[in-house]
Each structure stands twice: as C-alpha cells, then as structure tokens.
Amino acid sequence: MNRDHRFLSGGVTSDPWDNLKRLTAARVALGRAGTSLPTSAHLEFQLAHAGARDAVHSTLDADRLADQIRAKGLSCFVGNSAAAGRAEYLQRPDLGRTLDEATIKSLSDWHQEEGAPKFDLSIVIADGLSARAVRDHSLPMLANLITLAEKESWSLSPVVIIRQGRVAIGDEIGSQLAARMVVLMIGERPGLSSPDSLGVYFTFEPKSGLRDDSRNCISNIRPEGLSHALASHKLAGLLRGANERRLSGVQLKDDSELVTVDSDIADIGNFLALADIREHYASES
C-alpha cells in the first residue's frame, strides 16, 4: 500500500482500513493525530452529542401541538406531570410518572361534566426525553391511529398532551378517562445518532401502578429507524390482538411479520477468519 495517501493533512494519520466503514455505523477508522482524535472526528462527535443534549432539553410546544390536533377535529387537553422542570424531571422519575393536581382536576371535572363516558381508546402524547421526536413524529402517527380507530369503530377520548411526562403516566390518564386501551407516544432517550426517536407504549385496561411487563412497546420510530408506516402497522396488530385477547404486555406477542430496520449495510460475515487468511497466517508464523 502506498505510504503517502495515509497522510490526509499535516499531523493526521488516516487508517488504512477505511473500506471497513461501509460495514458498520460504528465510528471506525477515524484516523489519528498522534494517537488522539483528529479535529474533524472530534468535532463531529461534539456535534452529535450537542444534538442529543439539545433534544433532551428541548421544550415541547404543547399549545401548538394541541392546535394542530384540534385542527384534525379531535378535542385535546394539555397538562403537566408532577415534575416541575427538566432538572427535577431527570432526577425524579417518580414525579414524571404522576399527574400534577391541576391536571388531575381538569381531567376529572371534564369527565364528570360529560357524564362519565367510557372510551375504547385514549391517546396520550408526552415529551419524555426528546420533545423533538414528539414534534417530528407524533402527528403522522396520530393520523394513522385515528384511521385505525375509525376502521375498528373504536371511540376515542380527547387526546392528552403532557409536559415532563414518563411512560407510566399514560396509565393514570387512561384510567382517569375510563379508557379500555391507552396508547402513549413519548420521546425516547436520544442516542448520538438518534436525537429524534419516538417510542409508543400501549396498555390494555390501564390503571396507576402497573409495571413495565403490562405494557407493549414499539421503539426507534424515526426516518432512519422504524418508519411511521411500519410502526403504525405493528401498533395496529398489537391493538387488535389486545382487543381480542383482552390483555397487553409480555403475554401479548407481536404477530406482525418480522419487521427489521432497513439497512444499506450488508453483513458479509466474519471476514477476519476467512479460511485463506488463517492458512496464510499459519504458514507465515
């Protein structure tokens, strides 16, 4: 191999296995300055981390989202968890799982005024750890859900948007609104390459205090992960299955055909242990 091309520019040594980058999304063959990260690789990492941090600390414009939902002809509530702000939310997961008193009151007042109706489905949207994911993906997912509910003739409660919410808060809301099923859309913990990943959680017969094993989850909903269409397809399968079998959680399996994330990265197997390499090395040593 030609020695010269390894020097990209002053002080940076590139790695002569650049070709392996096409096999993985991992940060391989970054090159080095001395043995440290080259400036470009360092700043690319910083940018990715900044994106993830900004997603965690982004604020959900709940009123705007509520207007967009009302424009679809649905009624909508905006409320808060018991966590007062982001710092408290991050340190007190227990508070993020429960509604604040004002929200509890407004939900129960409304429910009583309406004559304590029962619903087939409640939809809850919470910022979670990425308001950006909610901003970008909750409306198209909601539209697909509404279509499904119409097809199945399921009654829908008002949509509830919660600031500083965690997953379990959906169960409390579903129970407040006397809903048989609750679907919660929430921003997931951002990864360096996924600041906008939405998760969808689903509970049959929601009530406060249920554990994780009572819920089903569809994760990694974003353009580079699970598309809105595929995620909605899986969710529809789960909701129909739950509605028939009257349960959710670990006992409810996802029967939709195995949907994997589209990947343009091919798996060519273990190229490090191809037989000819082994033989070659054995004869050399």
Binding site: L23, V28, N270
Partner: peptide, 8 residues
Amino acid sequence: SVSAIAAS
C-alpha cells in the same frame, strides 16, 4: 452484524 463486529 458479524461483519460490523469484525470491523470494530
């Protein structure tokens, strides 16, 4: 992915 693992 085995080849991704091998690359790392």
